[in-house]
Design a binder for these strands. Structure first.
Lengths: 161, 161
DNA sequence: GCCTAACTGTTAGGCTACCTAACTATGAAC
DNA sequence: GTTCATAGTTAGGTAGCCTAACAGTTAGGC
């Protein structure tokens, strides 16, 4: 945990290689996001809204929507940045802001039906492109990747703490 | 290769999971880059210069430095964006622009000694932080990660084509 | 030789996404 | 019923990317 210690050389090499891989992956992500329709930041925001509460709110009778602060925390940005994204989404008709009935300071953000549709189609498109790339790999590569994804998830989870 | 085909469902799931992992990794990268000293873009540029030609140019008698277009291509950005970064690096005393003796249209960019020092220390710091995170993982996780890195490298290489 | 076409890099202008600081409005505590 | 904390917005600024327009250099065709 302590970064000031000398650290195992092998660990440093792995760290370097992993950083390198992530650095190069930026281009991949940029490529996937380059199809226009929705920016990476906006898709992330929409996706978060979708995961956190159904747009139709069938079973969510009490507190529908997500608070701005929570969105910011989930996206790893500051509150004003979240506000900015939300305003853009609202202008695009993809999300809606409503007062929180339980706390008048707060704002509840929800997907509109159009927002839900947009995030689904954008996701499908990106997944299809990525799947196309993965399809060209040998089975063993795909297996290795699949095995590593949970690990990367755990690494990312480290940051939440 | 053809993204318009229906595609294997398992492949789509893997694609989705991989995209998700990369999306979350953005926060990790942001965290690593947040230590100030050098922005991600600038470190990438410096690193590229370092890998492509020694600053001292001991053995590189003929064509020292890297051309702007080549830098742009390597970083996956357009030429004006590369120019912008280079100007900043030059102002910071980390890189130098020189005329290309063989082609007067071209510009050769080289690291200064200060630039070399800066990239090394920035890299070491980031590697140490990452190594600290990796140290908290079980051995099996590290092994899985190490096995997947070459795969991610191959995926990224796909884009060059 | 010279004129045109292709190429290299810079400049100008614009966009998105992030930030901090300052502000408004509401809630909670005493 | 002040006072302090909390939720979000607004204002202003920065970094990094883009396209379009430009200047200078090289290379061909004739």
């Amino acid at each position: 945990m302590n970064a000031s210690e000398p650290a195992d050389p092998g660990l440093l090499v792995l760290a370097q290689d992993f950083r390198e891989a992530l650095r190069h992956s930026i281009y991949l992500v940029r490529r996937l996001d380059a199809d226009g329709e929705l920016s990476a930041a906006q898709l992330s925001t929409l996706k978060m809204l979708m995961d956190s509460g159904p747009a139709t709110g069938a079973g969510a009778s009490s507190a529908a929507g997500v608070r701005v602060g929570e969105i910011a925390r989930n996206l790893g940005v500051k509150v004003p940045s979240a506000t900015e994204q939300i305003i853009k989404l609202e202008r695009a008709g993809l999300a809606r802001r409503e007062p929180d009935p339980e706390d008048s300071r707060a704002v509840r953000v929800r997907l509109t039906q159009a927002g839900r549709t947009a995030v689904e189609s954008a996701n499908e498109r990106r997944n299809a492109v990525m799947a196309g790339i993965l399809a060209s790999l040998p089975d063993a590569d795909r297996a290795a990747l699949a095995a590593a994804l949970p690990v990367i998830g755990r690494i990312n989870a480290t940051l939440q703490a």
